[in-house]
């Protein structure tokens, strides 16, 4: 049963991982951070990632069709790639009211996006379900 820090450290063991954070997307608060962040400031990165996550989560076009009540996160994950890195955002589904996601920053040369996506999904589940 890992806590937030153990979960983030586990994410950092993925190939190419540079930084990881657990972020609340309504407020933009980083609940935990490990490693580097793109601008050197985890709080700014968290606020910016939260804005992206919120847009994806709040627009009906991206929502899964099986949960019209919106009780669960409508989006599973978000992938942003640029010339030198990948950003992977994984929404965490909690049984209590929350709006958190895991944010993993990978270097493009070493990162394996497919593997990271599967692993981050497992970590998000273990974080809250054990």
């Amino acid at each position: 049963m890992p806590g937030i820090d153990e979960c983030l450290l586990e994410a950092m063991r993925l190939p190419g991982a540079r930084g990881a954070a657990l972020v609340d997307w309504t407020s933009g608060l980083a609940l935990g951070t490990v490693g580097e962040s793109p601008g050197g400031d985890h709080e700014t990165t968290a606020a910016e990632a939260a804005e992206l996550a919120r847009l994806a989560a709040e627009h009906g076009a991206f929502a899964a069709g099986d949960d019209p009540g919106g009780e669960r996160p409508p989006v599973e994950d978000l992938i942003v790639s640029n010339r030198d890195s990948y950003h992977l955002l994984r929404f965490v589904d909690t049984s209590f009211d929350s709006s958190v996601f895991l944010h993993l920053w990978l270097t493009r040369a070493e990162g394996n996006l497919a593997l990271a996506r599967i692993r981050l999904g497992e970590m998000a589940e273990r974080l809250v379900l054990g």
Binding site: M1, P2, G3, I4, C7, L22, D24, S27, L29, L31, V92, T94, S95, F96, S98, V100, R126, L127, V128, L129, G130
Partner: peptide
């Protein structure tokens, strides 16, 4: 709460930090 297996440490931490802030 943790010892009784009622919720994971991660869930408790996430909810606790949310409530605290």
């Amino acid at each position: 709460l943790l010892a009784g297996g009622h919720l994971t440490e991660g869930a408790l931490q996430v909810c606790h930090l949310g409530a605290l802030y």
